[in-house]
């Protein structure tokens, strides 16, 4: 079965992104396909590579990156939501004249159309949020 995952909250404040991660991981492990994980609202903050959690805590963005690498899953940050919140890849940073970028490996920036497209392609779309 093909799943699409929508993550509406950032890491650490709400459990939503942990729940989304565990669900996505379990779905992939069971042999299901995940068309795309789409990050919206504060969910785009899952995609920063500058987060430095304490050593005894989970590293949420690294965990997503590892999942993307292992299963070749698309992790997409909504461009408008990401720009608002200061999540930039190299191209976006250059275009906006900013002095740095902070996108974690495996994440990409794209438009909201990718969310609708995921809903069209997938057999099931599940939303995690507050």
């Amino acid at each position: 079965m093909k799943f699409a995952i929508l993550v509406n909250e950032g890491p650490y404040t709400h459990q939503a992104s942990d729940s989304a991660y565990h669900f996505t991981e379990a779905a992939l492990r069971a042999g299901h396909a995940v068309v795309r994980v789409f990050f919206y609202h504060d969910g785009v903050n899952n995609g920063t590579r500058l987060s430095v959690p304490p050593q005894d805590d989970r590293n949420i963005s690294e965990r997503w990156s590892a999942l993307a690498e292992q299963y070749d899953v698309e992790l997409i940050l909504c461009v408008a939501a990401a720009q608002r919140r200061g999540l930039l890849d190299e191209d976006e940073a250059k275009r906006a004249g900013k002095d740095g970028n902070n996108m974690a490996p495996g994440f990409q920036i794209s438009g909201l159309g990718q969310l609708i497209d995921a809903g069209i392609q997938a057999d099931r779309l599940i939303v995690f949020g507050d």
């Binding site: 079965m1 799943f3 669900f23 379990a26 492990r29 069971a30 299901h32």
Partner: peptide
């Protein structure tokens, strides 16, 4: 979580 995924199918 495995059961949750199964339920959503």
């Amino acid at each position: 979580y495995d059961g949750f995924v199964q339920l959503t199918t």
